[in-house]
Structures are given as C-alpha cells and as structure tokens.
Design a protein around this nucleic acid. Structure first.
Lengths: 230, 230
DNA sequence: CTTATTTGCGTTTATTTCACGCAAAAGTAA
DNA sequence: TTACTTTTGCGTGAAATAAACGCAAATAAG
C-alpha cells in the first residue's frame, strides 16, 4: 500500500466536482463527454470531473475541470445537486457536487486529452459511467427550470444571433415547439433583445434580423420581479 | 493527539448535512435553531446538522438530524445547496450539504436537547454560527421557488385547514399580499383542494369552510404539465 | 348598540395567450 | 423559365386569464 499521509479520527468520504458541459450548435443541445481510460468503468463515457483540492471550493474545482477540457476560463457554471449514494463509486466513498456549464461551441478549443473527449447530441448519449446517467437527467431538468427564470440561454448562443436560432435553442432545451410568430412577438415585447445591426438597406425578406442580449434591460426587469414565461 | 484511524493518500474534507427546519404557526414561517454549547461559535445559534456517516447518504443524515430534534420520521426533506467555502469551519475543512425540511408544528415533540432548541420567526433570527445566515437566505429563496411549482405548502399545514390559513402561508413564504377573493377563486379553480367537512347546517357566515389537500387531483394535473401560479 | 371584521360568492374590466393571416424575397425542382 | 415551397417580418381577432372590486350576512369588539 502507498503512503497514507492524511489521517482522521472518523472516516471521511472523498469529495469530487463533476461538470456537465452543455453547448448548442444552432439546432440541438450537445453534451461534452470523456471516455474513461482507466478502471472502474474503463471505456465508458463520463462527465469531466475530479477530486476537489483542499484549498478550492466545489465550484472552483468544476471550473478547473471545465478549463482543462475546453480552455474556457469564463463561463456560466452553476451547482445543481450533490450525489452521495453510498456505493456510487466502487473504489471508495465518493460524494460528488454536480455542476452544469454553458459554453459557446465556437469558443471551445480542444482540451488536454481531446482525443478521448467528444460532443454528443441529446439523443445519441452512450452508456455512462458511475451514476452519470442520473446526473445528466437532473442537469437537463434543472436547465429547463432555469431557462424560464433566467436568460441563461444567451450563454449558449454567439454574441449576435437570429430570432430563429434563439427559438431553436428554447425548443431544444424545453423539448417543445413554438409558433414562430408568437415566439417572435413575445421575445421582442420582453425588451431584453437589442438589434445588433440596424438592418441594412439591401435587406431582403429572407435576411433575418440580428439581435444581441440586452443585459442592462434585463437587470431592470429583474428588479421589478419578472419572468421569462413559455 | 487522539487515535487517527482513517488514513488517505490525499486530504479529505469532512462532509456534514445541515437541515433548515421550517414550520408554520398559522401566521408566519418559523425556523428551528439550536444554540451551540461548544466552540467554535459557542452560544451562537445554528441549524441542526452533523457529520455524515460513512454508510448513509446526505439526505439520510439530514433526516436523522431532523428526527433527533423533532421526533419526526416522515417529513418533506429536500437538498438545496452544498456549501464548500474553504474556511467556513475554523476546525477543519468541512463541506456541508444543506437541506430544508417542512414540518407540522403540531406534530413536533421536543428533541433530545430541547433545552437549547427554539423556534424563531422570520424577523427575529439571532446571530448565526458559521455561514448559516447565507444558508438560511438560500433556503428561503428555494422555498419561494418551489412553492410555485409544487404544493409543498401543504406539508406545513395541518391535515385540515381554512382558506385563510392557506393564504397566510403563501403570503408568509412569498412575502406578498393577495386579494382574499382572488386567492380564494384561484385556489378553488385549481381543483387540488377538497372540502374536508360538508359544512354543517348551523354554519354561520363567519364559520370558515375546512379543506384538505387533494393529492390525487394534484397528480392528475401534474401529468398534464401545470403550475401553481402567483 | 354601533362599528369593524370575517366569510362566501359573485361581476366587470384589463391584460395576456394563442391560433392564424398575409405578403415579399429567395431558394428548389421541373 | 415556371411553379412551388420556405423563410422572414409584421399583424389581428378570439379566447382565456388575471386583477380590481361589490355585496350581504354573521359576529366579534368597542
């Protein structure tokens, strides 16, 4: 047995942070998975994650994992649940604080071990290691809830986007279909969108308007207690 | 130094579960706090909580704490956030999985050390130990969110209650005022209330109707995707 | 005895959804 | 080319919902 330097009077579980990384390719939601190279669950896919260092918070740990895999330092990262089933890891007792991250696919660079990392669409998720299928289900549910209260969707879109892209994003996350015209009206009436370019003179009917997220206006609305309703 | 039997190759934080226990006395929300008898934060008030055993989940640990303080085995307990700031406990690195519990005050018995336990109203919370003020703020916010989607409010009321009690509960949690008549209409139209007693013949105008929560009807509605809106 | 409060059960009006219409430009297939 | 479909911007009316408020009976409080 190797050296065991850290001793306690009572048993301590290991604590890890996992990071479910969501991206959006203009049509559907994607999830970044890593193929495990070692036992247990060798060959199975899993979320980026690792042991929390003794001088970092769980969120900092999750951000570290995110950066290792995507190169992104700034991103929307939020903790959503802590999984503590007794036998969720066969090696030792491991409690994991699960997070999700929202990233713009265009800004993602291949990470350290890009060879074993891949983006998967919602309907092509392979067999996952540990209890990661349960973690994914919970992450998706939390995403659905959050997008109705906070404009987190914009974290997944490029700076400038079209109304159709925005609608595709909402439809992908909520797994529903909206009437295009109603979605258009509702979003504009909310006032959290700004026209990115003043629509060129040569604009044809099929050249869509470009928008960007208006954070200032959103902050105003939020104070008055409001809600992105769908 | 005492015996240190449990050794690991890397440092492991301690993991605790805390339990913010909410009750409702017919007018306002109450929180159960325990006065600490030992350092650190001796004399300060804190939520029931303790170290997670190696063979129990965080929720089981929270339920154990709940039962020790209230005698209640069955209650609505939900995890809401894990706090992992590096210095939140001066003794050692402690990560806590925070839960809230909803209990009926009438069913609560004094716990093991009832002497040091007390119910506090929302506006008379004393100075709290550790980062428990932050934990309380987060618990209240989560409660506000949840009550708009799930009928968790009924966990706080007695089996049979009046419409006014129900409204007081919603107003206390959401910290708003409703028009009595609109609240009445909305709740009845939802269909999740059942009349508890068929309203006696000698009922005067000031004898309020008694209701109970109709779980079956709620299950129906939930399937169709619905929402307690306020 | 007078006044204020509580309860049940409405109605009216404003606001918000929701379903759908329409025309212009541009791509698609014959 | 021609005919057809798709995409986009911008409306509009009907239906549903939320919000404001009326009223009378019973009774508790002063």
């Amino acid at each position: 047995m190797s050296e065991q330097h850290y001793c306690y009077k009572y048993p301590h579980p290991a604590v890890t942070a996992d990071c479910v990384i969501f991206g959006f390719d203009g049509t559907g939601i994607k999830v970044l998975l890593i193929q495990r190279g070692i036992e247990p669950y060798k060959g199975k896919w899993a979320f980026p994650g690792g042991f929390m260092k003794i001088d970092e918070t769980a969120e900092e740990c999750a951000r570290r994992e995110l950066e290792e895999e995507t190169g992104l330092k700034e991103a929307c990262v939020e903790q959503f649940y802590t999984f503590s089933d007794v036998n969720r890891d066969p090696r030792e007792r491991v409690v994991t604080v699960a997070h999700y991250a929202l990233v713009r696919l265009s800004e993602v660079k291949g990470g350290d071990d890009a060879a074993s990392a891949r983006w998967f669409a919602h309907d092509e998720i392979p067999a996952l290691a540990f209890d990661h299928d349960r973690i994914l289900r919970m992450a998706m549910n939390r995403l659905k809830e959050r997008i109705c209260f906070e404009p987190i969707g914009f974290e997944l879109l490029p700076e400038v986007f079209t109304m159709t892209e925005l609608q595709n994003l909402y439809e992908a996350i909520l797994e529903v279909k909206f009437d295009r015209r109603n979605f258009y009206n509702k979003m504009l009436k909310l006032g959290i969108l700004a026209e990115a370019e003043p629509r060129p003179a040569n604009a044809s009917r099929r050249t869509p308007n470009k928008y960007r997220f208006n954070a200032g206006k959103y902050a105003e609305l939020k104070q008055k207690g409001f809600r992105l309703e769908f």
